[in-house]
Amino acid sequence: MTSSAVSRSRRHRLRGTAALVTAAVFAVSAPAVADGQSAALGGESRPARARPTVVLVHGAFADSSSWNGVVARLQKDGYRVVAAANPLRGLPTDSAYVAAVLRSIQGPVVLVGHSYGGAVISQAATGNSQVKALVYVSALIPDKGEVLSSLSAKFPGSALDPALRRVPFKNADGSTGTDLYVAQEAFHAVFAADLPRTTTSVMAATQRPIAAAALADRATSAA
């Protein structure tokens, strides 16, 4: 693929993701237009709904900067955006953290998750009436009781598992765990094949690992 074709592919992906999110925020905001028309036609005036805040949650091997292209497009359209820093330590921990971020935001929220982030938003949004829409971008969407690794295994053909590097670590309390990284030499092909290698080489070097235990976690709720 030529560099110009890669550039077009990247722009297409960003536009597609931004369009998907914009469709959700428009659906949440649409009654404001109807309310305004009602008032203009002499009907009873009702307060317009506030524009939602878009909260973006990244998945494994990434950080919140992976949303930069989508953030720029949404901000250009006048939306307030928060790209949450997903801890990637496990579904209970990560969903509780994102839930706390959601509680800090006033007004309606459109919540977006990519990859593992889809599982996180499903659990984080449970019981939060401010979350008006969930958007899944190539994401896991577990039902209550489903285990993430079992859900992924339903669809064979992934090149991810053979490319994983397992790095043990020790917690402050003496317990141990394992972090999962994508091997740098495989990162481009496995994680972001539509981007230039100059970009993916930086992404590979700065990737955020996910705790292996997270993939064994069971979803306790599904918004």
Rank of each mutant, 00 (worst) to 15 (best):
Q123N: 02
S4V: 06
R80T: 03
S138M: 12
G42Y: 01
A133C: 08
A99S: 15
H12T: 13
G90S: 01
T206G: 06
A100Q: 14
S38K: 10
A100N: 13
V81A: 04
V98P: 12
A32M: 09
V21R: 11
V190Y: 12
S150L: 08
T53P: 09
A186M: 14
V81L: 04
G177E: 06
L140H: 13
L215Q: 02
V55P: 10
S7G: 12
Y97Q: 12
P209G: 05
L41A: 02
A214C: 00
A163L: 13
T199V: 15
S122T: 12
T176I: 11
A192Y: 05
V33Q: 12
V6T: 10
G107M: 02
A27M: 09
L195F: 08
S175M: 07
S129Y: 09
G36D: 08
V33S: 14
Q106E: 09
A24T: 10
A124D: 03
M203Y: 09
V33A: 14
R89H: 03
H114R: 13
N68P: 01
A124Y: 01
V110L: 03
P142K: 05
F61Y: 11
S95L: 04
L164D: 12
R15W: 15
V82H: 12
D173K: 02
G107Q: 00
V55Y: 03
Y136P: 10
L151W: 04
H188S: 07
L134T: 13
V70E: 11
S150E: 12
E185Q: 13
V54L: 04
A119Q: 03
P196V: 06
A19P: 08
G43P: 06
L102S: 09
P168Y: 06
H58F: 07
G177H: 04
A153E: 09
V135P: 09
V110A: 05
I210L: 09
P52Q: 00
A186L: 11
Q130E: 07
T53A: 00
A23I: 05
A222P: 00
L102E: 08
D179I: 03
Y136F: 15
R11K: 15
A62C: 11
T2W: 02
A23Y: 10
A119C: 01
V33K: 11
G117C: 09
A62R: 14
R46Q: 13
V82N: 07
D161K: 07
S7V: 08
A27G: 13
S138C: 11
S201C: 06
S9I: 01
F155Q: 07
L74A: 04
R51Y: 06
A205K: 09
A205C: 06
I210D: 02
A84Q: 07
L164C: 07
P31K: 08
A24G: 13
A83D: 01
S152A: 14
L164M: 08
Y136I: 14
F26W: 14
Q207P: 04
A27H: 10
T93E: 08
S115P: 12
A186D: 15
G107S: 01
N86R: 10
G69T: 08
S150P: 01
R13D: 15
D77R: 15
R103W: 09
V182W: 08
G107T: 01
T199F: 08
A186Y: 15
D173H: 05
G118H: 11
D143T: 08
A5G: 01
I121R: 09
L164E: 11
T200W: 05
S104P: 07
V70S: 14
A84G: 10
A205E: 12
A223C: 03
A193K: 02
L164K: 05
